[in-house]
Nucleic acid binder design. Structure first.
Lengths: 187, 187
DNA sequence: GCAAGCCTAGACCAATCAGTCTAGCCCAGA
DNA sequence: TCTGGGCTAGACTGATTGGTCTAGGCTTGC
């Protein structure tokens, strides 16, 4: 399913999955390395600043995956509400596939750890990218610039908050209910 | 401002603040104890299971604070939209007071840590309590039972997600924009 | 004044942490 | 075939982790 072309990719991918499950501080380097079946030397060769560099690479990796999911939901959509609904259902499915436990890959990796300005800036940049991407799709589906950004922001917070609630409830049902709440919202 | 009647309360309060800032795994017992100016013996006397017991007490403490904020927002409200708007603004202010860094006290404490079923159950119970409380206020303001619950859930996820986005952006602006998105939503 | 027990106090422990360092594999170019 | 260097491999370190344990206040009932 997932091919790792390089040692560096394999480390970022493994770290991403583990950070999603237990958060930045909850995962030790030894755990990452044993999962990736790689020695410590490789890690510090590819990521000179160690764990923090690895976390940022892992978050970037996860962000790319999410952008793909957004595109997959919106490209075939006939209307914005259509794409939004598909996106929530795709995320609900993903949540279930991840064992109904994992958190948002970005906030779990970059916002649950120490007060690190670089982490904060990267998370902001990643979230902005997501919202921008959703807004772009909204515009393509005939929504005006300003409203598109508002709707995208609304969708983002509902997804982020809904995912958190789904974790607590150990059920993706609430994610599937979200489209009902957001549908036809003018702004 | 905050009086601690007992050693136990002081520990729970201190732990709650630190967990909000750095997450469950990000805070060491030594840090909690030095902040509370209490020895380790006291902690293990009052919380037999140690850190995990303390985290659950801290989360319960924080939950009570949030319920008070919800009541403060809705009790004087003339309409649901009124109360909802006040709640978002109160939370935005709180976010700023906390240095624009802290996360949700519940998810940071109970959902960022290890796969602990007791944590998960407690977080679910706490979130349900919040949503129930909001729905109760909605009903008092003339909204029907089913719609009240939907609106409360919608408000909750927007608050949770908005708070996360606010952290990334280091700004509470997005929280203050949320009422505009949710206003008059039929369900 | 004395004893009993709740609670404070902090030394101590094994385990684990992130990070450093050296040794050597292995492939590329000459 | 030899050599240089990108990369793997993992032993090692000092700091810190959560948790245990014993010793001694300090208050309460007599």
């Amino acid at each position: 399913m997932t091919k790792h072309h390089s040692t560096k990719d394999k480390l970022a991918w493994t770290a991403s999955k583990l950070f999603q499950e237990k958060g930045y501080e909850g995962v030790g380097l030894s755990e990452i390395l044993s999962n990736a079946k790689l020695p410590k030397g490789s890690l510090y060769h590819h990521f000179q600043k160690g764990k923090s560099d690895l976390a940022m690479a892992a978050a970037s990796y996860a962000s790319r995956e999410m952008l793909r999911i957004i595109d997959d939901a919106f490209v075939p959509a006939k209307t914005y509400d259509d794409g939004m609904t598909t996106l929530f259902f795709k995320c609900a499915k993903l949540f279930d596939l991840m064992g109904k436990w994992n958190g948002c890959p970005i906030s779990g990796t970059l916002l649950s750890g120490p007060r690190n300005p670089a982490f904060r800036d990267l998370s902001n940049q990643i979230f902005e990218t997501w919202i921008k991407r959703i807004a772009d799709h909204a515009q393509k589906l005939g929504i005006g610039t300003a409203e598109a950004h508002d709707r995208a922001t609304h969708l983002f917070v509902a997804l982020q908050g809904g995912w958190t609630l789904a974790r607590a409830q150990q059920s993706s049902d609430v994610l599937r209910q979200m489209p009902k709440f957001l549908k036809g919202t003018p702004a």
